[in-house]
Design a protein around this nucleic acid. Structure first.
Lengths: 156, 156
DNA sequence: GTGGCTGCAAAGGATTTGCACTAAC
DNA sequence: GTTAGTGCAAATCCTTTGCAGCCAC
């Protein structure tokens, strides 16, 4: 796991260098905190995670953009009132289903959606560039039966 | 077409009555303008469409919420910086693919995605409640060949 | 030393809200 | 007449930006 952080850091360093940007204390700390913690987070969540490290909100927003551009994190469509991110480095493609009541988030294999994306793009002659999907559902039934085969990830 | 508007209006009236809300001049005009115009729109687009009808921005936002709650319109994930809507009454289920460069929006049949939604929900024991999807792509290839089998809908 | 980076505070921009007046029923 | 709706302006809230001083290189 910590090995994964070092790899991500190395990728980030190379990315920054390639764009003649600087490797700063703040950028390293932010990357580490992102990969150390839960998968899904907002700028505010991240701000909480670096409390005490003396990193401003502005730097957080600016660094999130860099990390997304670099491909280490991605924006995910989990909420409507703020941007949510997840770290994607070293993870398989997947999509999200969210309970509209309790806000729990589950992930599922992204192959089926990727197939649709590829086919639609092909039919239109487009070059596919990814997608943003949120399936909404109500998990009451799940709470009753307690049968769940998948990892639950609770939003903050 | 105008028949469809009258039907939608009738549904809206029933909805309002069932919640003991009032049928106002503003609400009728907004519904008509929405169904008379293009499929995709933002609150600001709608504001432009009712210029001269003396309807405030606040009323527009409040009415959009009612129409969405009532099911006559739906939010669509076409842009990140503002809410986009489309009127769904009388239309087949579909999803959207957007060119990241020219912002053109194309619609495609929603059956495949609906199948994935149903299957994932079933596997988790959730009650499926819909989804929000935006496929992103680059249509440069399309522009070169000029071969497009589908209706183009340009965002404002 | 240079040029990018940071922190701070202010600005931006879509959406929501409080309130007094108006209109539907 | 009663109750909800509207318009206006102010407030919210997330995110971005301008700028002076700071740090990586």
């Amino acid at each position: 796991m910590s090995e994964q952080i070092e790899q991500a850091l190395e990728i980030f360093r190379r990315f920054l260098k390639s764009k003649e940007l600087k490797i700063t204390r703040q950028r390293e700390i932010l990357l580490r905190r992102i990969f150390e913690w839960e998968v899904h987070f907002s700028a505010e969540d991240l701000e909480d995670r670096v409390k005490g490290d003396g990193i401003s909100k502005a730097t957080i927003y600016r660094t999130l953009q860099l990390l997304a551009e670099c491909g280490l994190i991605s924006e995910v469509a989990l909420k409507d009132d703020r941007r949510m991110y997840e770290h994607t480095y070293g993870r398989d493609p997947h999509d999200h289903i969210v309970c509209v009541d309790c806000k729990k988030v589950f992930e599922f294999d992204g192959a089926a959606i990727a197939r649709v994306e590829a086919e639609i793009a092909k039919r239109l002659g487009f070059a596919p560039m990814g997608h943003r999907l949120r399936i909404e559902a109500n998990c009451e039934a799940l709470r009753k039966t307690g049968k769940c085969e998948r990892q639950e990830i609770r939003l903050g």
